[in-house]
Computed example of a mutant assay.
Amino acid sequence: MSTAFGGAMAENYTSPVIALVGDNAGSWTKGFETNHQVGDFTDSWTFSYSGVAADATGFVKNLQNSKSNIDFYSATLNGVALDISNIGKKSEIEFFDLPVNGTLNLVLTGKAFGTNASYAGTIDVTTAVPEPTTYGMLLGGLGVMGFLARRRKA
């Protein structure tokens, strides 16, 4: 998990560009976390991946304890407002299948109560990569069409 610690009383955190870790199946992911002291904050997280058109899914949740808490005021991913839930000491942000292509900018605003209030999250980006069987069926279909075209000429 990529860890970044930032923030203090009413301070904001801006991450460096964080590269999402990818696999060969068109999927990239990265975890992140930070903590704050008492006060309002605006945190900006920037993530990058290969840049092909894809969908982003993720969550952010506060790490509550008896001495600290975080309430989120707003959250956006590339300017799109995300759903927020603040119930008691449980605050969370979730998003599903948001179209992205390249750099992701996650901006969170909120308020920290108590010392060392923290939150953590994960971003997953997935492309629509065809299954190997899809390519097999495509090649098989082209083979049949070629066979039929050749047969008609004869």
Rank of each mutant, 00 (worst) to 15 (best):
T3V: 06
A4K: 03
F5Q: 09
F5K: 10
F5M: 06
G6S: 07
G6W: 09
G7C: 13
G7V: 09
A8H: 14
A8D: 11
A10H: 07
A10R: 10
Y13W: 09
Y13C: 00
T14D: 03
S15N: 08
P16R: 04
I18N: 10
V21H: 12
N24Y: 11
N24A: 06
A25W: 05
S27L: 10
W28Y: 14
T29V: 12
T29K: 14
T29H: 14
G31Y: 13
G31R: 11
G31T: 15
F32A: 02
F32Y: 05
N35Y: 07
H36Q: 02
H36V: 00
Q37C: 03
V38G: 00
V38H: 04
D40W: 07
F41R: 08
T42H: 01
T42Y: 01
D43H: 13
S44R: 14
W45C: 02
T46F: 09
T46H: 12
T46P: 11
S48Y: 06
Y49P: 05
S50E: 05
S50N: 12
D55E: 15
A56V: 15
T57L: 06
T57M: 10
F59D: 02
N62W: 04
L63C: 08
Q64W: 09
N65Y: 15
K67N: 09
K67L: 05
S68F: 12
D71A: 03
S74W: 15
A75P: 07
A75H: 02
A75V: 01
T76P: 14
L77S: 02
V80M: 10
D83C: 08
D83Y: 15
D83I: 14
I84K: 01
I84M: 02
S85G: 03
N86S: 04
I87P: 10
I87H: 09
I87V: 13
G88K: 11
K89M: 09
K89S: 05
K89D: 05
K89N: 12
K90P: 06
K90V: 10
K90T: 15
S91G: 12
S91C: 06
E92Q: 15
E92I: 06
E94C: 01
F95M: 00
F96Q: 13
D97T: 10
P99H: 00
N101V: 03
L104V: 05
L104A: 02
N105T: 13
N105C: 06
G110E: 01
K111W: 03
K111F: 02
A112I: 11
F113I: 10
G114I: 13
G114E: 03
T115P: 05
A117E: 03
S118C: 09
Y119C: 01
Y119W: 09
Y119V: 01
I123G: 02
V125I: 12
T126W: 07
T127Y: 05
T127F: 00
A128I: 12
V129F: 08
V129K: 07
P130N: 04
P130R: 13
P132F: 08
Y135M: 11
Y135G: 05
G136R: 14
M137L: 15
G140A: 06
G140C: 06
L142G: 11
L142S: 14
G143F: 15
L148T: 14
L148K: 13
L148V: 13
R150I: 03
